[in-house]
Design a protein around this nucleic acid. Structure first.
Lengths: 83, 83
DNA sequence: GGATGATGTAGTAGGTGTACTACATACTTA
DNA sequence: TAAGTATGTAGTACACCTACTACATCATCC
């Protein structure tokens, strides 16, 4: 089955931008509950929605989504520049 | 509605690697017909499958998938190095 | 000609993403 | 206290992704 889990940093990116779920949902054109479901990991978005998130946050898809868990802040992460 | 179309270059990448749909499907762990559906644009994959494709082809997701049509070969494309 | 392989079409079936409504909880602020 | 905002939970409903089977077409090769 390859364990269909996809990890995301939507909540982190949203917190970084200081916007609410409702604002993000409106910007993406989805229901505000959908953002909640995604942040809680209840399911992963469609590719189309993932690309819209990528475009909205202006970061590559890989920065938001990953097949493997994201490292904690502080550890040098893939896609981030080290000091 | 935002016209739920997602463009992809799976067929191109597969041709570049010289593998069949069945080989790609086996490598991805999906049904070989699913690859056909994706290449024909009958639907776009789940995010999980898109990330697996990205990992298999060793290119960023944006090189395979886009919300906008890909330019023809010859035109300098996003994600490719110009001469 | 017959066999094999790659691709396309057609159909059913099940799981999941998304919308939507309603209500609960917690926090802030007037 | 009351009102508003942000978030979480619960439920239904529908569209779409994916699996799978079967068959057709076309090319290649024995």
């Amino acid at each position: 089955m390859s364990s269909e889990v996809t990890f995301n940093r939507i909540a982190m990116l949203r917190a970084e931008r200081g916007i609410t779920r409702r604002q993000l949902a409106d910007a993406l054109g989805v229901h505000y509950q959908t953002v909640g479901y995604l942040e809680r990991g209840e399911f992963s978005p469609s590719l189309h929605l993932a690309l819209r998130l990528s475009r909205y946050f202006e970061v590559p898809v890989e920065v938001i989504f990953s097949l493997d868990p994201f490292p904690r802040l502080g550890a040098t992460a893939v896609g981030e520049r080290p000091a």
